[in-house]
């Protein structure tokens, strides 16, 4: 009997370790996107400001994925011969949105307003890393609660550690 309990305990601990290993080290931090979009070219080489495309970041809780019309605004003229741009154009011609894969995904019970952070002068880099050097976007922050709180504590955000400041 005693042995059985021991087996269960060992099995249980191993199970948790297995789960954690998968969660931490086997997540796809830089998923393949439908279009091989490079932030390095846009934000890095060409120095386009973040909010030129992510237009809602200062006004809303979401920063906004650039709409296809905005992509085409430039790419009707620029680099129209590139196969990736032709992919964008084909979405535009089909009147279909581009199904980007979400990299920074927060659970439903979190209220995260981009607006408050942008207006408080938090640089996009703080959470999203040096996007300007990424050819394919890669998740650089864990997005776990401790990570949020460490920043809130450091910056002495008013009520920044209250549950209902960020949970809903």
């Amino acid at each position: 009997m005693k042995k059985l309990i021991l087996y269960a305990v060992v099995g249980g601990i191993a199970f948790v370790i297995g789960y954690f290993v998968n969660d931490q080290f086997f997540s796809d931090r830089a998923p393949v996107q439908p279009i091989n979009f490079s932030h390095k070219i846009h934000a890095g080489d060409n120095q386009i400001p973040c909010q030129y495309c992510h237009i809602y970041a200062e006004r809303s809780r979401v920063s906004g994925v650039p709409n296809v019309k905005r992509c085409m605004g430039c790419h009707q003229i620029i680099k129209t011969d590139s196969p990736e741009i032709q992919k964008v154009a084909s979405y535009w011609d089909k009147k279909e949105p581009i199904p980007w894969v979400k990299v920074y995904n927060l659970p439903d019970h979190v209220y995260f307003p981009h607006k408050r952070h942008v207006r408080a002068g938090v640089d996009c880099k703080n959470c999203h890393g040096d996007v300007a050097s990424m050819a394919r976007i890669e998740k650089v922050s864990s997005l776990q609660m401790g990570w949020c709180l460490s920043c809130h504590t450091k910056r002495e955000v008013k009520n920044g550690r209250d549950c209902w400041t960020c949970h809903k």
Partner: peptide
């Protein structure tokens, strides 16, 4: 469930 700085009795669902 705890009291927050607004005098509200709040319930944290994920906890």
């Amino acid at each position: 469930t705890y009291h927050n700085q607004d005098g509200l009795n709040v319930q944290v669902y994920n906890r």
